[in-house]
Nucleic acid binder design. Sequence first.
DNA 1: TAGATTGTTAATCGATTAACAATC
DNA 2: TAGATTGTTAATCGATTAACAATC
Lengths: 210, 210
Amino acid sequence: MGKEISIQVIRRLPRYYRFLSELEKEGVDKISSTKLSAIMDTSASQIRQDLNCFGGFGQQGYGYPVSQLKDKIGSILGIQNNYKAILLGAGNLGKAVATHMNFQSLGFELSAIFEKNPRLIGTMLRGITVKSDEEIKDFCTQNKITTAFLCLPKDAVSAQVDILYSLGIKTFWNFSHYDISKKYPDTIVENVHMSDSLMTLCYRISESQK
Amino acid sequence: MGKEISIQVIRRLPRYYRFLSELEKEGVDKISSTKLSAIMDTSASQIRQDLNCFGGFGQQGYGYPVSQLKDKIGSILGIQNNYKAILLGAGNLGKAVATHMNFQSLGFELSAIFEKNPRLIGTMLRGITVKSDEEIKDFCTQNKITTAFLCLPKDAVSAQVDILYSLGIKTFWNFSHYDISKKYPDTIVENVHMSDSLMTLCYRISESQK
DNA sequence: TAGATTGTTAATCGATTAACAATC
DNA sequence: TAGATTGTTAATCGATTAACAATC
């Protein structure tokens, strides 16, 4: 096996994918690391290093074929997989996540939405009827769910993760501050901490005003 | 002036703040870097290094006073500032952001919400009446707005940022993929790229299945 | 062939970790 | 005082940048 890919490189892949998609749409069919670095505001060296973690996608003296490289990165990211996911929480955040994200182009398929609040059960989101929390177990055992998107308040997450984990779900897209990895170290967790992000912005404003 | 604080340290501050708040709630009044590192799953060394960027908050042989340290970090983050912000976009994402975030505890005050879609104008979100896009200029000149939360589709962001920038707003919490810093290098931008996050998760699932 | 640009190795830079003297 | 734990310096590690030979 080759060396492990660093998380920094992985986190840059979606951005490469976006810029290459843009270039593809504009009809650009080749690009050099230097030109791409100018567009993306990074260094040519970093682009070449990053890409070479996965293979030699370029051609010396020519550059990189845009469309092909985009596809390669997409395939490295695994977006062709359509991993089946369920969404927990149909409140404002869950609603935004369900309606806002283009799951299919990101490697996922939203199979079901679950909610505790009876008022929301039965409503439709993106063509999916919101189910009761109580149906989670049955649904997950009947369908091959790999991932859960957690749009619940922190207090509710803990108990739900216990259930989901017991059902074999070990991948989580987590919007709460509940620390899943700590209790279940063998899970794959991607956290979205919106409030941390906003606090960081606050810091930077404060700093700039000194 | 001392050395610049690295972005890595800054991004860890909200997390320290959260864990210390938790400890404070639990009635813990002192904690050592070793114990905190165990709770937070990090290293004691890093905690001491991070904190010492801002001053010596601990006491040798004793540890750190929880409540005081929490307050210190809050004040370093600048959450006492209540920076006035407007939110653009009252769609699903904007709605989630408006209702979900506790702005005050994060250093901000949501002053107004603007939207293009006439159906949404006039509706209420968190006690705030959604205004028309066309009122942005007047509102921002009359009120001292420092920050804009951008919950708009990418195509709409570009034009709005031009207007906001011309009104002197140079701080953005941006949920779109539009690259604000590139056009306006003197802005402070915090991006939340939810789709990048999900793609990263996809990569890690794919990787784990190899 | 000459020019361009990659792939890759080496150098640099910065962040994390380790160690320990200072001190409560 | 002895034990604990910080603050801080030094060592290590890893990521980024620079350089250049390979090659299209």
